[in-house]
Simulated assay, not measured.
Amino acid sequence: MPRPKSDFDQLHPCDFYTAEELLEPDRMYTVYEIARLLQELDPDAELEAQTEDILLDWAIPWVMTNAADLVIAEPEADDEPGYYGLKTDGE
Protein backbone atom coordinates (compact mmCIF):
# COMPACT_ATOMS: atom_id res chain seq x y z
CA MET A 1 0.00 0.00 0.00
CA PRO A 2 1.43 3.43 -0.85
CA ARG A 3 2.58 5.53 2.06
CA PRO A 4 2.59 9.30 2.51
CA LYS A 5 5.95 11.01 1.99
CA SER A 6 5.57 12.47 5.46
CA ASP A 7 6.08 8.96 6.91
CA PHE A 8 9.76 9.14 5.98
CA ASP A 9 12.47 11.04 7.85
CA GLN A 10 14.44 11.77 4.67
CA LEU A 11 13.86 11.60 0.93
CA HIS A 12 16.85 11.24 -1.40
CA PRO A 13 17.21 11.91 -5.12
CA CYS A 14 17.03 8.77 -7.22
CA ASP A 15 20.45 9.17 -8.83
CA PHE A 16 22.25 6.19 -10.32
CA TYR A 17 25.75 5.80 -11.61
CA THR A 18 26.14 5.86 -15.35
CA ALA A 19 27.60 2.72 -16.90
CA GLU A 20 30.85 4.59 -17.53
CA GLU A 21 31.07 5.68 -13.88
CA LEU A 22 30.37 2.20 -12.51
CA LEU A 23 32.14 -0.29 -14.76
CA GLU A 24 35.76 -0.74 -15.79
CA PRO A 25 35.99 -0.71 -19.61
CA ASP A 26 38.08 -3.90 -19.79
CA ARG A 27 35.93 -6.01 -17.42
CA MET A 28 32.68 -7.99 -17.67
CA TYR A 29 30.32 -8.31 -14.69
CA THR A 30 27.38 -10.46 -13.66
CA VAL A 31 24.20 -8.71 -12.56
CA TYR A 32 25.10 -9.82 -9.01
CA GLU A 33 28.42 -8.01 -9.22
CA ILE A 34 26.75 -4.92 -10.65
CA ALA A 35 24.28 -5.01 -7.74
CA ARG A 36 27.19 -4.89 -5.29
CA LEU A 37 28.96 -2.09 -7.16
CA LEU A 38 25.78 0.02 -7.11
CA GLN A 39 25.96 -0.18 -3.31
CA GLU A 40 29.69 0.64 -3.32
CA LEU A 41 30.60 -2.89 -2.25
CA ASP A 42 33.37 -5.08 -3.60
CA PRO A 43 32.00 -7.15 -6.51
CA ASP A 44 33.07 -10.31 -4.66
CA ALA A 45 31.55 -9.30 -1.30
CA GLU A 46 29.74 -12.12 0.50
CA LEU A 47 26.06 -11.32 1.03
CA GLU A 48 23.13 -13.14 2.55
CA ALA A 49 20.68 -14.39 -0.08
CA GLN A 50 17.94 -12.05 1.16
CA THR A 51 20.25 -9.03 0.89
CA GLU A 52 21.36 -10.06 -2.57
CA ASP A 53 17.73 -10.32 -3.68
CA ILE A 54 17.10 -6.75 -2.51
CA LEU A 55 20.18 -5.47 -4.32
CA LEU A 56 19.02 -7.19 -7.52
CA ASP A 57 15.85 -5.08 -7.32
CA TRP A 58 18.14 -2.09 -8.00
CA ALA A 59 20.54 -3.74 -10.44
CA ILE A 60 18.07 -5.13 -12.96
CA PRO A 61 16.43 -1.75 -13.73
CA TRP A 62 19.91 -0.20 -13.85
CA VAL A 63 20.97 -2.71 -16.53
CA MET A 64 17.79 -2.03 -18.51
CA THR A 65 18.21 1.75 -18.25
CA ASN A 66 21.87 1.60 -19.30
CA ALA A 67 21.46 -1.10 -21.97
CA ALA A 68 22.56 1.21 -24.81
CA ASP A 69 25.94 1.61 -23.11
CA LEU A 70 26.50 -2.10 -22.41
CA VAL A 71 27.63 -5.23 -24.21
CA ILE A 72 26.54 -8.73 -23.19
CA ALA A 73 28.40 -12.05 -23.12
CA GLU A 74 26.80 -15.47 -22.79
CA PRO A 75 27.22 -17.38 -19.53
CA GLU A 76 29.76 -20.18 -19.40
CA ALA A 77 27.04 -22.67 -18.37
CA ASP A 78 23.23 -22.76 -18.52
CA ASP A 79 22.94 -22.40 -14.73
CA GLU A 80 25.20 -19.31 -14.52
CA PRO A 81 24.39 -15.64 -15.14
CA GLY A 82 25.49 -13.78 -18.25
CA TYR A 83 28.01 -10.96 -18.22
CA TYR A 84 27.65 -7.25 -18.89
CA GLY A 85 30.35 -4.79 -19.74
CA LEU A 86 30.83 -1.22 -20.80
CA LYS A 87 30.48 -0.71 -24.56
CA THR A 88 33.68 0.78 -25.96
CA ASP A 89 34.64 2.05 -29.41
CA GLY A 90 34.03 -0.57 -32.06
CA GLU A 91 31.64 -2.71 -30.03
Rank of each mutant, 00 (worst) to 15 (best):
residue 76 E to W: 04
residue 81 P to N: 11
residue 52 E to Y: 04
residue 34 I to S: 01
residue 33 E to W: 02
residue 78 D to P: 06
residue 59 A to F: 04
residue 10 Q to E: 12
residue 82 G to M: 08
residue 86 L to S: 05
residue 30 T to V: 04
residue 65 T to H: 12
residue 32 Y to M: 01
residue 22 L to C: 10
residue 20 E to Y: 07
residue 50 Q to T: 05
residue 26 D to M: 05
residue 30 T to Y: 05
residue 91 E to V: 00
residue 43 P to E: 11
residue 27 R to L: 04
residue 67 A to S: 13
residue 20 E to K: 15
residue 71 V to A: 15
residue 86 L to D: 03
residue 41 L to W: 05
residue 72 I to S: 12
residue 78 D to Q: 08
residue 23 L to V: 03
residue 5 K to C: 09
residue 42 D to R: 14
residue 56 L to N: 02
residue 28 M to Q: 01
residue 39 Q to K: 15
residue 44 D to P: 03
residue 33 E to C: 01
residue 32 Y to T: 00
residue 64 M to K: 15
residue 68 A to S: 15
residue 81 P to T: 03
residue 79 D to Q: 11
residue 91 E to L: 01
residue 56 L to Y: 02
residue 53 D to K: 09
residue 60 I to E: 15
residue 60 I to A: 11
residue 36 R to A: 06
residue 52 E to Q: 14
residue 64 M to S: 13
residue 69 D to I: 00
residue 77 A to H: 10
residue 65 T to F: 07
residue 44 D to R: 12
residue 21 E to C: 11
residue 88 T to E: 05
residue 53 D to A: 14
residue 9 D to H: 14
residue 74 E to R: 14
residue 57 D to H: 06
residue 61 P to W: 10
residue 80 E to F: 09
residue 43 P to Y: 11
residue 18 T to V: 04
residue 82 G to N: 11
residue 18 T to S: 15
residue 26 D to P: 03
residue 47 L to A: 08
residue 32 Y to S: 06
residue 84 Y to E: 04
residue 17 Y to V: 01
residue 21 E to G: 10
residue 79 D to P: 06
residue 62 W to S: 03
residue 2 P to S: 14
residue 47 L to M: 14
residue 16 F to Y: 08
residue 11 L to H: 15
residue 83 Y to Q: 04
residue 7 D to I: 03
residue 87 K to G: 03
residue 74 E to D: 14
residue 34 I to D: 00
residue 34 I to C: 02
residue 58 W to L: 10
residue 77 A to T: 07
residue 62 W to G: 03
residue 2 P to Y: 12
residue 87 K to I: 00
